[in-house]
Each structure stands twice: as structure tokens, then as C-alpha cells.
Design a protein around this nucleic acid. Structure first.
Length: 422
RNA sequence: GUGGGCGUAGCUCAAUCGGUUAGAGCGUCUGGUUGUGGCCCAGAAGGCUGGGGGUUCAAGUCCCCUCGCUCACCCCA
């Protein structure tokens, strides 16, 4: 049997309610803030990701689903949410809209990685980006959106971690400070971290290797290397979060996995931080547009993994209820009644009632069993006895008395009865 | 890419020391007098025991390979 590709998942109907809860909650919070939906292609030119994400990142080095199409172009499945949205902003001239342009998306993300708990090769993210405004209030707006979304779903114990990476001008100095600090300690560091000494020293900070983690305690802090404007930006953001009653902790080791961030970076993590702890995270990326050859476009945004949100939903005991869908089950008792059963089904649906129809003549017992299991509120039986007398039998499934209604008037009568009950 | 654990029916699991025709519960379908659901009862369908090779009189069981799942590392959401 052909099986689904590794690291992918079939989402079966019983998961629908929870997914709908996440999507609808997020959409509502977005609409409350004037964020508009955007969607971008599943495939992008490979350079979009390689040039923005950073060469030394794992994402660019080994996690991209890249292929050559028949025309010889190198394309990559969306490995990240932000760069495509920034590309779309630039390509479609959205700088002509009122700034900042506030966008949100619900989309799939592809990364070639060994699957494990909370990690897939195809996963889904809710995400938002606010483009065209450098002020810290926009950072606060975006953080507030994600924080409020979690809260609205009953996830209220995530810790917001915050840091600032400063601007490109000050990055080299900080980077050098880290190199100076870690180089003498290289012997007690793991291979990966030693590699990063030359490729990406910032990333040493979020190593989970205990020995390296200890060394990081004394490492230089990016906040100490911020320029005056970047420091002001960070201070203002903290003030705004305070005003919004959003508590946070400063995490000096928070650097995020993508290179394009500057100034604000943040993550939401659960209290019992396991290995796949980050539920959502993001930051400011004022220079991302330039990396793809566009003019300067300041921006800030986040992505949050839906599968991980679901994990936390469960942990916090939030349960999503399926709305009962089928209201009426129409049961033909003979094969000869199927046509009229389907016609009545159509008429009821046209009147806005959710109806399921039994597809072949069968005993009342058989049909009523199915009707019960379909969660319908009532069954309509059509047999020879009914057809001969021009009626149908209407049977509420809550134990109330069965009644006969004229076939010609069936839709109106059923509408009336259903209306009375609800 | 590296390491650990696990693969028996759609699901959750049995199957003695290697020994007959691989079982159960749940679920599915059908039936339980004449045209009436849930509960209950009965019956049926459903298995290349993940796949391949080996050892053996005999393999679900032991060995090797492989594939898959899973957990962790790396990294991320």
C-alpha cells in the first residue's frame, strides 16, 4: 500500500473542530485589529529563501524542499512564512496602501527534517506581518495579536520571552565580543558550537548543550551593545507591553534561527518547556526586503505552529465542540422511494436545513439506526404506505410522538417543527 | 544526519519454552415476527503477524537485512 510521505499527516474529520477553533479564533483577532488575509504560492524561487534566511542557518542548509521544474528553474516549497509575504508586498506595490500594511495568513510550511513529537515535514502556521512602519508600537501590536489569540483559546500560561538583537551597524561589534568570549573556551564546547564560532556566533547562545549553556551565562549580552535608537525602541516596546498587561521575561540567549531579524525578537514557550517548546515566535526584520533586492521596508511579524498550538490547547484543557450538523435524516423504505426521498432532501436543503438521505430502500430499523448515529434530530420515513396516501412520516428522535405530514406541505411543516424545538 | 524504543484486524491489545486452523474487546456491516432508533443479543466481514532472507521437523515468537512508526539529539513552529 502506498503510504503518506514521512513527516506528513492526514487530518481526519475528528480533528476538524480543534483546527477550526484555532483558525477562527485567529481570524477574529486579526479582523479586530485590521489585519487582512493574504496568501502566497506554495512554491517560490529558491533564492527567496536562501538569500533571506541566511546561509549558515539549518533551514537553508538542509531543510529546504528544493527541486528543479521542467523549465530549469529552482523552486522551493514554502519553508518559512515571512519572506514570501514581504516579496508579495514589494512585488504588488503594497507600499501604496495605508502604512503599515497588516497581513495575516494560515498556511502550510515545509521543512525536510526528522519528524518527532510536535515536528513535521509539513506543518501549518498562523502568522501575521505588519509592513512599512518601524515604530515599536507595531511590535507591540503584533505581539498583542498573538498573545490575545492564545488567550482567547484558553492558553493563558505561555511565557513571553523577549530580546533585542540591535541593528546591522552594531551587530559586528557584538558578534566579535561573542567570538572573543567563546574562543578561549572552545575546548569545552561541542563540535556544533565550535563550528558556529566562525559561521554564526549568535547561535551558540541558544545551544542546549549543558556545558555550552553554562558558558553562556557569562557571555556578552546583545542588549549591552545596542545603539541609542535600538535601545530606545526596546525600552518603548517594554513600556507598551506593560501598558497592555502583557508580561514578559528578558531572555538574553534568545536569538531565533533566522538571520534576518534585527531589534525585537520574541517567543512564546509553555511553562514545562520540553524539546519542541516554542509555540510561536517572531520579531522585527527591517532589512529583509533589501536582502531580496527591494527598497527598504521595515516590518515585524510572527509565525506560530498550529500543531503545537493544538498540543497546548489539549494541555490547557480547552475542548472544541463539533457543531451538530445533520438535522434531518430522510429514509426511503423501498428502492422505489429513493427518488422522492432525494427530492425531499433537496427541498429541505434548499430551505437551509442540513439533511442526510439514506441511499437505498431498507427497513425502518436499519434507517433509524443510521439516523440515530448521524445525530439527526428527526427522521422522515417514506414508504409505500406513505406514498399511497400522499404523506411522509416525521419522527423526532428525542422520543416525541411520530406524526404524518402531507408530502406537498412537508418542507414547511418540518421547518415549523424544527423551529419550535430550537 | 546521529542514537534509543516499537511494528499482530480500522483502533486498543492477547497468543505459554519455537508447536494444531493467529484470538479478544471496541468499531463496521447484517439480522433479532408483520414497517420503527439508542440499550441488549446473535452472526458476518475484516490478517502475506510491515517486507525480504536465514536457522529449524516447525517461526508472530530466534538471527540478519530492509522499510515504516515513534522518542530524543541537531534544529525549529
Amino acid at each position: 500500500m502506498i503510504q503518506r510521505p514521512r513527516g506528513t499527516a492526514d487530518r481526519l474529520p475528528d480533528a476538524a473542530a480543534a483546527w477550526r477553533l484555532v483558525a477562527e479564533t485567529f481570524q477574529r483577532e486579526c479582523e479586530l485589529r485590521g489585519f487582512a488575509p493574504i496568501s502566497t504560492p506554495t512554491i517560490e524561487r529558491t533564492e527567496l529563501f536562501t538569500r533571506t534566511t541566511g546561509d549558515a542557518t539549518d533551514l537553508a542548509q538542509k531543510e529546504m524542499y528544493t527541486f528543479e521544474d521542467r523549465g530549469g528553474d529552482s523552486l522551493t516549497l514554502r519553508s518559512e512564512g515571512t519572506a514570501p509575504v514581504v516579496r508579495a508586498y514589494v512585488q504588488n506595490g503594497l507600499h501604496n496602501l495605508l502604512q503599515p500594511v497588516k497581513l495575516y495568513y494560515i498556511t502550510s510550511i515545509f521543512r525536510y527534517d526528522r519528524p518527532q513529537a510536535g515536528r513535521y515535514r509539513e506543518h501549518h502556521q498562523i502568522g501575521a506581518e505588519a509592513l512599512g512602519d518601524p515604530s515599536p508600537a507595531v511590535d507591540a501590536e503584533v505581539i498583542d495579536l498573538l498573545w490575545s489569540t492564545y488567550r482567547a483559546m484558553g492558553i493563558d500560561d505561555l511565557r513571553l520571552e523577549l530580546n533585542s538583537l540591535g541593528d546591522p551597524e552594531t551587530r559586528p561589534a557584538y558578534r566579535q565580543a561573542l567570538v572573543d568570549y567563546f574562543t578561549p573556551l572552545a575546548d569545552s564546547m561541542d563540535f556544533e558550537s565550535r563550528e558556529r564560532l566562525t559561521t554564526n556566533p549568535l547561535r551558540i547562545l541558544d545551544s542546549k548543550n549543558p556545558a555550552v549553556a553554562d558558558l553562556c551565562e557569562g557571555a556578552p549580552r546583545s542588549l549591552d551593545y545596542l545603539s541609542e535608537p535600538a535601545l530606545d525602541h526596546f525600552e518603548e516596546l517594554k513600556e507598551l507591553l506593560k501598558a497592555l498587561d502583557i508580561s514578559y521575561t528578558i531572555n538574553h540567549r534568545l536569538v531565533r534561527g533566522l538571520d534576518y531579524y534585527n531589534r525585537t525578537v520574541f517567543e512564546f514557550v509553555p511553562p514545562d518547556a520540553g524539546s519542541q517548546s516554542t509555540v510561536g515566535g517572531g520579531g522585527r526584520y527591517d532589512y529583509l526586503a533589501e536582502l531580496m533586492g527591494a527598497d527598504h521596508v521595515p516590518g515585524v511579524g510572527f509565525g506560530s505552529g498550529i500543531e503545537r498550538v493544538l498540543l497546548n490547547l489539549e494541555r490547557c484543557g480547552t475542548s472544541a465542540v463539533d457543531p451538530r450538523s445533520t438535522e434531518v435524516y430522510v429514509a426511503p423504505l423501498t428502492d422505489g422511494a429513493v427518488a422522492d426521498a432525494m427530492r425531499l432532501t433537496r427541498q429541505l436543503r434548499d430551505a437551509g436545513i442540513a439533511v442526510e438521505c439514506g441511499f437505498r430502500g431498507a427497513s425502518p430499523r436499519s434507517h433509524l439506526r443510521r439516523a440515530s448515529r448521524s445525530q439527526a434530530r428527526a427522521a422522515v420515513l417514506i414508504g409505500t404506505r406513505e406514498s399511497e396516501r400522499g404523506v411522509v412520516a416525521y419522527k423526532p428522535l428525542d422520543g416525541a410522538a411520530q406524526m404524518e405530514v402531507p408530502r406537498v406541505d412537508a418542507v414547511n411543516r418540518i421547518l415549523a417543527v424544527l423551529g419550535d424545538e430550537s
